[in-house]
């Protein structure tokens, strides 16, 4: 394996995230390759340097400031809901408002029309009733016609 490939493994080796078998191979190579050993040493120093940087902490009262922001967010949402009625007048241009209003009217009208239109079930019942009545009339008419014919034959 070339040094280029060994060097790629040094980061994982530094983190102790290699198998025991791979660790043995890496350590064996580091003992025999000065360039790779130097690079590993530099990685180690970089690691210690970064870890030596003091941990930064927030100013005291972090939770209190957070609570305040939470309260403000809730208030803002409430204000938005209440102010919607007025807010939309400011946020949309005149053409947009007209378009929205027309769309709303059309939507309501179409919905109302659909709601009031007889359903297919209702239509079928109505048709059935008409057909039934017509058939009843036809039956009685045919009966009236047939009576004299029977009598005439005889």
């Amino acid at each position: 394996m070339s040094c280029k490939k060994w060097k790629k493994k040094l980061s994982s080796y530094l983190d102790n995230e290699v198998s025991s078998r791979e660790r043995s191979k890496i350590e064996k190579h580091l003992k025999s390759c000065r360039a790779c050993f130097n690079q590993f040493e530099q990685l180690g120093r970089l690691h210690r340097l970064v870890r030596s940087i003091p941990s930064e902490k927030p100013r005291s009262g972090f939770y209190e400031r957070l609570s305040e922001r939470l309260s403000q967010k809730k208030t803002t949402l409430r204000e938005k809901l209440v102010g919607w009625r007025y807010g939309w007048q400011l946020s949309f241009p005149r053409v947009g408002k007209i378009a929205i209003a027309v769309s709303a009217v059309l939507l309501v009208s179409v919905s109302f029309y659909i709601w009031r239109s007889p359903t297919s079930y209702e239509v079928n019942i109505k048709v059935f009733e008409e057909e039934y009545l017509r058939s009843q009339q036809m039956n009685s008419f045919v009966g009236e016609l047939a009576l004299p014919v029977f009598f005439e034959i005889e």
Partner: peptide
């Protein structure tokens, strides 16, 4: 990612590491 990050940093600050 870690290998690339460390390699980039190592090259940039090599004189300080040495």
């Amino acid at each position: 990612r870690l290998s690339r990050a460390r390699e980039q940093l190592r090259r940039k600050i090599e004189p300080y590491l040495n």
